[in-house]
């Protein structure tokens, strides 16, 4: 049986994935390798933050303590964020960014598809909306993975390095702890473990077309779901939360 507290925590995990990845992707605004890509990444970031807002609103209403989306997004300490570690992984270079985006979009597409059946109607509505947006992200990122993996010697090397660095984080997406289990049993959130096979198939298809090796999905690095983060997270939050720390309660 899932309690209101469970639902709140589950929604927070999901919202944090979107906010933290959205913040990461937005770091490319004004810095992307070409103008079209700058626009693409900024738009993807905007979509992710849009989904995060809807999820934080729903989480805040579920919690019922009067916390709004801004308070949830900006006024928590590092350990209270429950995003996947992959979301906070530094942009590093375009290869890492676009491969991370491909992995996330593939995962999110499957996740939202399954969430259409959620017994929580507000979540099913967010899923239907996000699913349409993620289809664009997925296509865009997969195109780049193929183009760069199967591109020049240099782009291939960069993609190999990105794949080697990001692979250890993939298993965390499908971990089913007690909370995820209770939420899946109540059909509120999808069972993450059940998404792994479809994700693995999508990944293998794109990586193969990109002339990249397909390593097994392992769970070597995790902890984000319980608030244990990598070193990169503190730096990300310092920037994300700067305005609210400098001007508490500021609105615009």
């Amino acid at each position: 049986m899932a309690s209101a507290e469970d639902i709140f925590c589950g929604l927070l995990r999901l919202a944090d994935d979107h906010l933290i990845l959205g913040q990461r992707v937005s770091e490319w605004s004004g810095h992307a390798p070409q103008l079209e890509e700058d626009l693409a990444l900024s738009n993807i970031a905007l979509d992710l933050i849009g989904s995060a807002r809807a999820l934080y609103q729903l989480a805040g209403e579920t919690e019922g303590k009067g916390r709004d989306e801004d308070q949830l997004a900006f006024l928590r300490d590092e350990r209270a964020y429950h995003n996947l570690l992959l979301a906070e992984y530094p942009n590093t270079d375009f290869a890492h960014t676009i491969l991370r985006q491909f992995y996330f979009s593939s995962f999110q597409q499957l996740y939202w598809q399954a969430a259409l059946e959620s017994t929580l109607p507000e979540l099913a509505a967010i899923a239907a909306k996000s699913l349409k947006e993620v289809a664009y992200h997925h296509r865009h990122a997969a195109d780049w993975v193929i183009r760069l993996g199967d591109g020049t010697e240099l782009s291939h090397q960069r993609m190999l390095a990105a794949e080697a660095n990001l692979a250890p984080y993939l298993g965390e997406m499908f971990e089913k702890d007690a909370l995820a289990g209770r939420l899946a049993d109540a059909a509120i959130l999808p069972d993450p473990a059940e998404l792994q096979a479809a994700f693995a198939a999508d990944r293998a298809n794109i990586l193969t077309r990109a002339s990249l090796p397909v390593a097994d999905i392992e769970s070597r690095l995790s902890g984000g779901r319980s608030g244990r983060h990598t070193e990169a997270m503190g730096h990300l939050l310092a920037e994300l939360q700067y305005m609210q720390h400098r001007f508490p309660g500021q609105q615009w």
Binding site: E36, E37, L39, A40, S42, N43, I44, L46, D47, Y136, R139, H140
Partner: peptide
């Protein structure tokens, strides 16, 4: 098509 993403979320270039 130049880019699947454009000047706003709803447009492509």
């Amino acid at each position: 098509k130049l880019s699947e993403f454009g000047s706003t979320a709803c447009k492509a270039l």
